[in-house]
Design a protein around this nucleic acid. Sequence first.
DNA 1: GTCTATACTACGATAGAC
DNA 2: GTCTATCGTAGTATAGAC
Lengths: 210, 210
Amino acid sequence: MAHDRLLEVAVREFGQKGLEGASTRGIAAAAGTAMSSITYHFGGKDGLYLAAADYIAGQMTDLVREGSPLDEGVPDDPAAARAALHAMLEALLTKMSTERSEAWSLFIVREQIRPTEAFDRIYGGPMGRMMRRMADLVAAAAGVTDMKVARVTMLTLFGQVLVTRAAQAACARVLERDLRDPELIAQFVRRIAANTDAILDRLIAERQEK
Amino acid sequence: MAHDRLLEVAVREFGQKGLEGASTRGIAAAAGTAMSSITYHFGGKDGLYLAAADYIAGQMTDLVREGSPLDEGVPDDPAAARAALHAMLEALLTKMSTERSEAWSLFIVREQIRPTEAFDRIYGGPMGRMMRRMADLVAAAAGVTDMKVARVTMLTLFGQVLVTRAAQAACARVLERDLRDPELIAQFVRRIAANTDAILDRLIAERQEK
DNA sequence: GTCTATACTACGATAGAC
DNA sequence: GTCTATCGTAGTATAGAC
């Protein structure tokens, strides 16, 4: 079906060039079909863009479901919560580094800069669930009851992972290396894990001071 | 001069909508001049885009120069280096939150997604210097000699700040607050400072284990 | 220097053949 | 369902008046 090919190409093209930067002719050509197929299947460029967002949300949900550490419950036990948080951050970083999800990341980062309805569809689905769960895990792991603290901390933890995508060009320059290098990714995983432990311990210490 | 007004508007428009998303007609109209002024002053849309990048680089340099903590030497003393790192991260976060530099951040984040010559001009100037200095500060503060470790750590520290810009839409959703709220920014500053201390202490502990 | 007028190109939408 | 052909409408570039 041209429908599916169009979606695949659209996610890539919209991610790399943005809504205005990508052209329907270009997408159709890359998908090996006529431009008017876009009108037929999706009603137009905007429709295709939203469909791409839904496609990403769906794929994210699948990824999260297939026994990955991104979608289990929130354990009460601090140690278990911490382990789940570690697994989640590692999974995020490695998944974001695969070629397939690289297109998603770009799409999503773009939507952060200027959110459209597409962001609602992605955030309203798997992304929001993931971030809320991460905040809950931080709270459980550090015994924090103030959810505002847990959320802010969660975002700084997430930032450590995000930087490899949202500042990929700068990272590549500073490190003088391609960010797809598995060894480099492994180094980030180790560093982020150590940082996370340090941060959680610090949170626990802060709590005990009171 | 229409030249300067065009640049101001261009930074804002390109930052928000990207190169393709912004239109020369729109920029000229917002600057209160005719579109052909862009051709006269900058040679065309691409020229204006690059000029906007240079303008940002220049403004960043000015900001860095005006007695801010972003551009002093790298102290040998670990405590002084740590203090300088703290000052730098706080300055970054607060500067990135001002309305004026918000346009820069967006411009730069866009350039990370698909780097053009504009990125070379910004990274080759103040941005690269800043990141290299931050890595040096991490190395000095934690007594790390392996610069690869210092750079990776620096990037994770930077990520904590970056997340408030590059994932601003998601942050606003999770926190149910506008990210320009000074109180919220202050909370981020405190959290990132505490995290940074925890991470540096952890690095020092790692070194002593060997 | 700045503006008006115009030319040219590429895009997205649409109608209709198959 | 898919394609071809065509239309209207942006967009940028350019020439020339002031």
